[in-house]
């Protein structure tokens, strides 16, 4: 039974922005298949009426006073940028002219 086909791997890789090699696509397809077969044991559990737990902390809507405070200096924030120009992060053109 194929849960994941080659076209699914390519679709997921596109969503995840990963330019996988052909070799990796094949390997990952096989391994995801194995992991998902294993995960199928979750279907044994009756979860009717069970609320999902996205989190375990009993905290909701944590608020703080809206007070101005210093933020990271621009030079520091840009120091790790692969490319920065004129105080901005620099990327290839996104929109056509």
């Amino acid at each position: 039974m194929a849960i994941i086909e080659r076209k699914d791997v390519e679709h997921i890789a596109r969503l995840a922005r990963l330019a996988l090699s052909e070799e990796e696509k094949e390997l990952i397809q096989r391994q995801l298949e194995t992991i998902l077969e294993y995960a199928a044991i979750l279907n044994e559990v009756n979860t009717d009426g069970v609320e999902p737990s996205a989190h375990v902390v009993a905290l909701t809507n944590v608020l703080r006073p809206d007070v101005r405070r210093p933020s990271m200096p621009k030079e520091k924030a840009l120091a790790n940028a692969p490319e920065a120009r004129d105080g901005y992060f620099y990327v290839p053109r996104i929109l056509d002219e």
């Binding site: 994941i4 699914d8 791997v9 679709h11 997921i12 890789a13 969503l15 995840a16 990963l18 990952i28 995801l32 992991i35 998902l36 995960a39 979750l42 279907n43 559990v45 979860t47 069970v50 609320e51 999902p52 737990s53 996205a54």
Partner: peptide, 25 residues
């Protein structure tokens, strides 16, 4: 890849949401 799959349309309920419910149990 696995995480993106588990969150993707058509599989979210079956894998991710199911896992969150099992987490509650």
């Amino acid at each position: 890849m696995l995480g993106t799959f588990a969150l993707s349309a058509g599989y979210y309920d079956q894998y991710y949401l199911k896992a969150l419910k099992v987490r509650t149990l």
